[in-house]
Design a protein around this nucleic acid. Structure first.
Lengths: 243, 243
DNA sequence: CCGCACTATTTGTATATACAAGCATATACA
DNA sequence: TGTATATGCTTGTATATACAAATAGTGCGG
């Protein structure tokens, strides 16, 4: 035996990664439809001139990632695509409206720099009275208000925030662009509309509304903290989960 | 050489799984706090009398699961705990209440077999007027109502539903037991309480409530379809998402 | 025609081995 | 003292091997 061996790898990318992307490519190109059987470990090992264990690693990782499904004795198959769209997905309200074939518009009520209150400072991880950007925008679907957005943004992480034209793009779009999100905390509750929200959303004070608190973080810290209020009778959040 | 080997494993549980649960136990018991360094692959291999690759597998899987963090050249460390509780997780309301250290109780308002209405038949994938089980239960936290649950259940998939004692367990607990869930559709909206809900939840008609529609499916089809209403001021749904 | 044993294929578990690469510390040298 | 170098530990990649377990198909006997 001795396990003499050719100069191991050398390349930068691990070999199993190459096999993974090959399989991914085939699936994305549509060559391998869901439920299609993919080559076995031994076949891949032969094809890519690697050991079975290396081919196996590629298949195993893709299985962990939900791309493939494996069954002992049967083989490895392309998994069904997961249904898109989660309640927690950070969707752009403008895109959502467009997707429904409606026209999106917004009404900017406030866009300023203020001193952080105690609660805002805590949420953003800043010192009290530190300067923060504050915006208040009403988003409309076919000119009917569907979301009241109050947002506090960390100036250090999104310095150009106040210069954005939010009649064209949304705060979310800008923030996603300047700092890739790493984490989002969301809380959902039902509230009764107060006078101010009722006026902005053109509903009656006391009407039931869906209120969402959302804190978005990038690797550098808390980027933004928003309170989103939807009229109860004009908005729903949907989610599908599979096991 | 020959690689003569003792009678491989024999036991039912894989050896790497034993190592995984050992590590999990230590972390859950608090012996190993976050950022604590865990034994190296070689140490674990020695301790559990397995090869390094087997010990490695345990550490790798726990890393994939977010329990550990590894760093080449440095070692393996206990990861920071993820904030628990997902909005979409199918939680048992009774467990939720217990977790808060409060007492759980329920008030069963209705428990019967009825003929499916058009909407219910559609949601459950049954024919109109087909028999369905119908229940209406109010769940309480320290005797204060926090959820009004109206549920329609497919008799074919949960035949013993009406015989359950829902003052002890919840519908969710029974349904999860008889048919493993494969899929859940959820919709969230804000509504104003009507007279009936207001009475049941001991709030005022017109108060803002969080309404959740939830359809649970197993491989055999739609198991159950529920409408859950929470008083707006007594309930929140939280979710954390990481990228 | 039905059931049973057998076989080939495929994934799953486990090991021993070799070398690469990142990191920290100790050591030697200027 | 300060900067290289070496050493030892760690995780990461890759291979060859052996056997276990699940599955589908084949062929044989009743």
């Amino acid at each position: 035996m001795n396990t003499a061996r050719e100069p191991v790898n050398q390349g930068n990318q691990p070999r199993y990664a190459a096999i993974k992307s090959h399989i991914r490519d085939r699936i994305e190109a549509g060559d391998w439809q869901p439920h299609t059987r993919v080559p076995s470990e031994n076949q891949l090992a032969e094809e890519f001139q690697v050991s079975r264990m290396t081919a196996r690693r590629a298949l195993s990782e893709l299985t962990d990632e939900g791309v493939l499904v494996r069954s002992q004795g049967l083989g490895t198959f392309v998994a069904e695509p997961r249904p898109a769209g989660s309640l927690m997905e950070i969707r752009n309200i403008a895109d959502e409206v467009s997707a429904r074939g409606h026209s999106y518009s917004s009404r900017i009520q406030r866009l300023e720099e203020t001193a952080a209150s105690a609660a805002v400072a805590l949420a953003l991880g800043l010192a009290e009275t530190a300067p923060v950007f504050h915006s208040r925008i009403v988003h409309c679907d076919n000119d009917v208000p569907i979301q009241w957005e109050e947002r506090f943004t960390n100036p250090a992480l999104a310095p150009q925030y106040l210069q954005q034209d939010f009649s064209v793009s949304t705060p979310n779009a800008y923030l996603s662009a300047v700092a890739p999100l790493t984490e989002v905390d969301t809380t959902v509750e039902a509230i009764a509309a107060d006078e101010e929200i009722a006026r902005a959303l053109e509903i009656t004070a006391g009407d039931a509304c869906l209120q969402i608190w959302r804190r978005t973080m990038s690797s550098a810290g808390v980027v933004s903290f928003a309170r989103l209020v939807h009229p109860g009778n004009r908005y729903r959040l949907g989610a599908q989960l599979r096991f």
